[in-house]
Design a protein around this nucleic acid. Structure first.
Lengths: 143, 143
DNA sequence: GGCAACTCAATTGTGTGCAATTTAGTTGGT
DNA sequence: ACCAACTAAATTGCACACAATTGAGTTGCC
């Protein structure tokens, strides 16, 4: 029997990823953020300042993605960038006061998405564990 | 306790999706296909001709994504497009002989990816079931 | 001290994805 | 038969995402 698109888990992962993107888009629109921008802001709300390098490791994104994204966040006055004094190669990303204030308005976003996903907490943990195994294994395969 | 990026399943789904993209990219590079292009080809290998609309339903992509993608496949001589005679609004996508021949070279791609993902068959089915529930539920939430 | 190897960010080029609009073709109600 | 409402693709504009390159800065080794 021929393998069809529907047999590929990869397809479901891809489709799920885009469906969640869409869910976030609806919720984040009123904050003026995209989903990847929201992820960057979450890292900053947790710890600050952060270098572009650290953002990349944390979010698994490279400078080709982060540089223009940060430029947009800076244009929206949510973020500031400055060269590190310790190491002039690094760029430190900091929140502006407007960026800090956004945290309060964003705090119920995860709950909204969780509600829209329809999984029990145990299933979420299970899913998360499986996906992390896949990610780690694929990373390993890539060497 | 503040919610961090690492707590969001959404993040893992997103990251897993990109990690699989990367795995496919490595395998598909020698076929000259991207992952979404490969998905379109799979649908065509299974059934032909197919309208752009049907491709969109099957792969959950809209014409804004498919039109340029098909144009690239056509430029690579893998695919032909022609207006349907039944309904002049529709466009039928067909394989060229070069497109058909590619199937043979692509047939072991799923196995290669499966091998790189490191999940047992039962886990794959479980993951697939969970993701489909999430997709259906998110679709429902979006109305 | 000097230079090669390395690192960090930014840039360039290509390919998705999606919202919104446009163009062409079809259908249903009167 | 006509016109309004609908549908299918394509196009436009924007925002990721990644490979490859570039430029500036740092480090290690002699």
């Amino acid at each position: 029997m021929k393998i069809s698109v529907d047999d590929l888990v990869c397809f479901d992962v891809h489709a799920a990823s885009r469906a969640m993107d869409a869910a976030y888009r609806r919720v984040l629109a009123e904050l003026g953020l995209t989903y990847p921008q929201y992820l960057v802001m979450m890292v900053l709300w947790e710890r600050e300042p952060v270098t572009v390098k650290e953002l990349g490791v944390r979010l698994r994104l490279d400078s080709g993605t982060l540089s223009p994204l940060l430029k947009r966040l800076e244009a929206a006055s949510l973020v500031r960038r400055e060269r590190s004094a310790d190491d002039e190669r690094s760029v430190l990303v900091r929140l502006t006061s407007k960026g800090s204030q956004l945290e309060e308005r964003a705090c119920d976003v995860p709950a909204q998405i969780f509600g829209a996903a329809g999984l029990a907490p145990a299933e979420v943990l299970d899913l998360q564990r499986t996906l992390r195994r896949v990610i780690a294994f694929l990373d390993e395969s890539a060497r």
